[in-house]
């Protein structure tokens, strides 16, 4: 018997080793594959434009767009700030409005009965149809755009939070009653934490919608040369056949959406990962 034979065998069997290898590979692939697709797509685009000699006013190549991104940064950066501010403010207002209304709805059946239909009407009326009206009645272009984005973003928060506030465990509600909890205590210690995962789900949707609302509002309201954010820059560029700038603005809007989604997902993870099923990794 050699020493190697007597050494304790590792406690992982072949199956687990294979599993670990697979997981490692998956981890790398998760980043590598989409990056590869991106690089290949840009390359194909570039070759198509250069070899096919496609004029830039039909389809600008990635090189031109990159150039425009740098050249026009002094235009694009302020536009990013405006659209970003618009989106974030609309989202904050949506959170305040949606949560307040949801609490009011669940605290009083009368308030819910009175106002819920109008919240639905506000939601189902396309914001594109309302935006011109808002533009007439609200002087500031920024304020009217904000209003549009808010209308779009607030409903998912309202509806999710309302469902969440109503989802408390009935036995826990009884327990709170037995221990003589006040309305406020029930809301604070029972209904609010119960609603949190629902609210965060709504927040994720609302983040994307706030950006869409901001873009739509800029299209409709910013058209008259008031020069708002990225979307009106994009629109303006299309009028001038400046397709390099148009694509640059489009890419920035997309990136903004991705960033917002990432932020919302992070908030959600941080708030829930300790206790909520949705954020817990299952052991196999």
């Amino acid at each position: 018997m050699t020493l190697a034979d007597t050494a304790p065998a590792p406690h992982v069997d072949a199956e687990e080793l294979a599993q670990a290898r697979r997981e490692k590979l998956m981890k790398i692939a998760r980043w590598f594959l989409p990056s590869l697709v991106l690089v290949l797509a840009i390359l194909a685009w570039h070759l198509y434009v250069t070899i096919g000699e496609v004029p830039h006013y039909i389809l600008p190549g990635p090189v031109l767009i990159a150039q425009k991104m740098v050249e026009d940064w002094s235009i694009l950066w302020p536009a990013i700030l405006i659209t970003g501010r618009l989106t974030i403010l609309a989202l904050i207002m949506a959170v305040i409005g949606g949560v307040t209304l949801a609490v009011a709805f669940t605290q009083s059946k009368w308030i819910e009965m009175s106002f819920f239909p109008y919240a639905v009407i506000l939601q189902v009326t396309p914001v594109v149809a309302v935006a011109p009206l808002i533009k007439i009645y609200v002087d500031s272009a920024f304020m009217s755009a904000l209003l549009c984005a808010w209308i779009v973003a607030f409903f998912p928060i309202l509806s999710n939070t309302t469902i969440g506030l109503k989802s408390a465990d009935h036995n826990l509600e009884d327990l709170y009653s037995i221990y003589g909890a006040s309305r406020w205590q029930k809301l604070r210690y029972l209904y609010a934490p119960t609603a949190l995962p629902f609210f965060l789900g709504g927040l994720k949707i609302a983040g994307g919608l706030a950006l869409i609302g901001a873009v739509v509002a800029e299209f409709v309201i910013g058209r008259s040369g008031t020069g708002l954010g990225l979307a009106s820059t994009l629109l303006e560029a299309s009028y001038r056949f400046n397709f390099g700038r148009l694509f640059a603005a489009l890419i920035l809007i997309s990136l903004m959406g991705v960033v917002i989604f990432a932020i919302m997902s992070t908030i959600s993870y941080l708030a829930l990962h300790k206790w909520h099923e949705s954020a817990i990794k299952r052991e196999r």
């Binding site: 465990d169 036995n171 826990l172 009884d174 327990l175 037995i178 210690y189 029972l190 934490p193 949190l196 206790w275 909520h276």
Partner: peptide, 13 residues
């Protein structure tokens, strides 16, 4: 009064 239900009825958070 103390109460124990059929389910543990704990607050998961």
């Amino acid at each position: 009064l103390g109460v124990v239900f059929q389910e543990p009825t704990l607050m998961p958070w």
